[in-house]
Design a protein around this nucleic acid. Structure first.
Lengths: 125, 125
DNA sequence: TCTGATATTCTACACTTGTAAAATATGATA
DNA sequence: TATCATATTTTACAAGTGTAGAATATCAGA
């Protein structure tokens, strides 16, 4: 999508569920998944879904009483946008800046280090 | 600070300038630095500074006609919060997820890889 | 077909954020 | 000290976001 924008937190919550379920998505599925955790009422969820449709993140169809939804933006594409924005805004696109910030106080785990080393070496050869 | 919250973008812009200058900070300094770029009027900047004071990011003193400001939160502390929130929310705290997202389409530069390898190796032994 | 249950839509409202005009205070200068 | 220039404070307002009550539509069953 041209000029995709960051999602408000609540809408991103919804999208996370949408991405992890199989389409078509129903409101019931969303309610079941996060209704409890977030204590959202049905109209709240419906409002968020509607806004996501307006934003072009979902498309929707009405069958009788109920609506179904389908994602138009993939999780990968969205996370890429989000991550690039973040790296640029807070770390001048420097990965080193990021790790230094994160592990300034704490130490990285062995596992993280291993994964990272493996990843970096693979790209380098 | 207990329960520090994320800053709105405009306020973060201000903080970036605050952090890079020597305290005490004056509005004039801010205006000079980003007044042009962002085309903010003086009252806009003053409002943002006031909000930052209310949030506990700055303290301020009034000398005569003018105000001076001092940061109460360091750049390092704030970036740590921001980065941790980001990693948790968008990457389940996994670096690998982050690098895979970033370098899914593009390739990492030699320089990034070198820096990263160096960093990881240093931590490991 | 009437009725109740349920999903959706409409409407609303408070809070946050970005932005600044108008009003005011105060130091500098004539 | 009266006046001007300038910095600050007050006030405001539109958009965006989180949240949901009230109103409405529609399916399923009596």
């Amino acid at each position: 999508m041209e000029n995709m924008k960051r999602l408000p937190d609540a809408e991103f919550e919804i999208m996370k569920v949408v991405w992890e379920k199989e389409s078509p998505i129903t409101t019931a599925m969303i309610m079941e998944e996060i209704g409890d955790k977030r204590k959202w009422k049905a109209p709240t969820v419906l409002t968020l879904m509607r806004r996501l449709v307006e934003r072009g993140f979902l498309r929707t169809e009405k069958k009788g009483k109920e609506r179904t939804y389908y994602p138009l933006i993939s999780k990968e594409d969205y996370l890429e946008l989000e991550t690039e924005k973040f790296m640029k805004q807070y770390h001048k696109n420097s990965f080193l800046s990021l790790v230094n910030t994160l592990y300034n106080t704490k130490e990285p785990s062995e596992k993280e280090l291993d994964e990272l080393l493996k990843w970096a070496k693979e790209r380098r050869k």
